[in-house]
Design a binder for these strands. Structure first.
Lengths: 250, 250
DNA sequence: AAGTGGTCTAGACCACTAA
DNA sequence: TAGTGGTCTAGACCACTTA
């Protein structure tokens, strides 16, 4: 078959010509249309839907518009796309959930509470095995361990233990962190190009229980954050939240 | 000033003409370029970067390409964009973390373990206040409560308690859920158009402790999932994970 | 070899919003 | 009112993958 341009049927809709039943075809409307037809079971999970080309003709819009809509649906896990094969309705809607990880200051102020911060300890010491591995430190090198406490209306909201890669942070002074949390100091002074989060539940112990003002063993939601600048690990933070805390996504 | 077309300096690069120093300008390369200049502190947090127009001219590509790159950066929270104002380097890198929430079957098989599933209880009963609110049930209406257990290599991996909106699921039979978990049955039989996740830590209790084979009070990572079809709440599930479980994002 | 999605381009118009 | 990002379009070429 001869090679055809991407579009062929738009000639019925001359671009400058206002049409009495002119439809606004935004990529959002194409996305909504496709979602509705999936919802209505016109295309079943696992099935191929029409090509971009066909949808563009059917909906009377450019292929790029269909592409944008289907790309968004693929990003949400609603459809799966493969070259030469086509676009399928996802057989198993492996949903993705996006969590906002704001600065603690904003997280607390967003609840309407007054933000408070305290550094409870600062030491230069040998890292635990976990911290050494996380920061990729050479054997025998020391690191900085900071413990902090965040308050909402004066009550503990979260506490954290942060290991910092001392070699990568020559300019950091202890007193910098007395008013500014490590995460914020880092964001202002370094380009953090990569991050990784791990979420788990564990029992409060030691300083964590003390700083959160909960009994030892209380279940606490824990977030581990690992930050890099390019290939260099900068910080390994563990944040502990009081048991009533929730991470919400939509 | 007279209205100008979006692009004006491309005439130096006639499209068909292969250039000896021809640069491939993909939107990914534009994104990388912008990120690098942010990393190098050419533009500081909070500052405006050049307009799409200017970047397109400077990089020798179409504005649409710059737009795509900057849109991706905005989606990641690296920059913030506002019409008429321009594009700023985000002052506070409010990172977003995306979690994959696959079917339990895939989550377990992805670890290399053998998947197992059991329904441990099924009853039609009055919902708890939480469940009633979550499913927006009328006062006095009953709902379906299912408890299940997921096994990895025969050992408990996760257990869940699922409340289902009975009125919205006339076709559901008890025996359907003896081999297929509720989440999977729903995905196959209904279009779940909206979902919400809540993550918290709590102590294991009752059936949860039994089904996970952990002592009462053990910290368990809990995920609450609420699913809708359009505006109708369908299911309210709480999934409990053994303490060694981790949610990872990158 | 051929069919599908992925992307780039030049141009245009629109939507929002600060001045 | 004017300047910025947001989007659409028609066309084209490319990349990947199945057959």
């Amino acid at each position: 078959m001869a090679k055809l341009p991407d579009s062929l049927a738009r000639s019925l809709h001359p671009p400058g010509q206002a049409n009495s039943t002119r439809r606004m075809n935004t990529w959002q409307s194409v996305r909504a249309d496709v979602m509705e037809r999936i919802r209505a079971r016109e295309w079943l999970p696992g099935e191929l839907i029409p090509t971009e080309q066909e949808l563009a003709v059917e909906l009377g819009c450019a292929r790029a518009t269909v592409n944008r809509a289907l790309r968004e649906l693929a990003d949400s896990g609603i459809v799966e796309r493969r070259r030469k094969v086509g676009t399928r309705v996802a057989a198993t809607p492996s949903r993705r959930a996006t969590l906002e990880m704001p600065l603690m200051r904003h997280e607390i102020e967003a609840t309407g509470a007054t933000y408070g911060y305290r550094m409870t300890s600062y030491e230069i010491t040998m890292p635990t095995q976990l911290a050494q591995r996380a920061l990729q430190l050479e054997h025998g090198k020391q690191a900085i361990l900071i413990k902090t406490q965040f308050l909402a209306d004066g009550r503990p909201h979260c506490c954290e233990a942060v290991w910092l890669n001392a070699e990568a942070l020559p300019d950091l002074q202890r007193k910098d962190l007395e008013s500014l949390p490590p995460q914020e100091w880092l964001a202002r002074n370094l380009p953090l190009t990569r991050g990784k989060f791990t979420i788990l539940a564990q029992g409060a112990s030691g300083d964590c229980a003390t700083n959160l003002e909960v009994p030892e063993g209380t279940p606490v939601l824990t977030i581990e954050r690992l930050n890099w600048t390019d290939a260099t690990p900068i910080s390994y933070a563990r944040q502990f939240y009081r048991p009533e805390h929730r991470l919400v996504s939509e």
